[in-house]
Design a protein around this nucleic acid. Structure first.
Lengths: 115, 115
DNA sequence: GGCACCTGCTAACTTTCCTTGGCATGTGCA
DNA sequence: TGCACATGCCAAGGAAAGTTAGCAGGTGCC
């Protein structure tokens, strides 16, 4: 799956909004090197677990990272996160295409909204 | 120059944050078709000029669009905006590289911040 | 049992962003 | 002169995001 072909413009907005944050960018960068579990990653990044949890959740909601619950050798439950191999090439033309499938805030949500 | 090789991670965050907005995405899409002036574009998009101004300013600050002041046939000052031909390929590896040049919020702003 | 490590959640505060409305300026034309 | 169009700015309220602190649960080991 991954985010190869961004279908809806809403998805694009969500992904961009998710990546538009220094902490989340660091998380993606860290997970790009190697997967990690929450507490360890929090220490590595120098932020609180609560804060990291929120960011990880957003990244997961955008489909940029995935969680995998595992058991360590000593039987502790570790929640390992790994980055999704996404590729997103942003260009004016690409954005123009994505905008076609943007839902409008109030009225309806017709993709091909003519002006 | 355009945004061919995103230098600092801060720039990346700025560009992403700028694009992470439905209105600004629509603006980029509209300008990708053809350049336009503020009032006309506001009518075309169905938003107020004040709102469009703010979004255009952010887009310009991120280097995604450029303004060009011209005079119409009847002597009116028209501020034409056009999109910049940017190309930004987002991948985990690309982000990992950009993070290297992310400035930290409080302390200093050393690019190669060790963990 | 007590300590150290892991997990998750929620409430509340602070900060930032979005949006609107109003005001001021300048031009051309009837 | 008054209308229509263009430009810009600033203040203020509402909505959303970021962050912290605290609580509760689980396991292994001395």
């Amino acid at each position: 799956m991954s985010a190869a072909s961004p279908p809806t413009g809403d998805d694009l907005v969500r992904v961009l909004a998710t990546l538009a944050n220094p902490h989340r960018l660091r998380v993606v960068a860290a997970l790009a090197r190697e997967r990690a579990y929450v507490s360890g990653l929090a220490r590595q990044l120098g932020i609180s677990r609560a804060l990291l949890q929120v960011h990880l959740r957003k990244l997961a909601a955008a489909g940029l990272v995935t969680a995998r619950l595992e058991l360590s050798e000593d039987g502790k439950a570790m929640n390992y996160y790994e980055v999704e191999p996404f590729v997103l090439t942003l260009t004016p033309a690409f954005i123009a295409a994505a905008v076609e499938t943007l839902t409008v805030p109030d009225s309806g949500e017709q993709p091909g909204a003519q002006r």
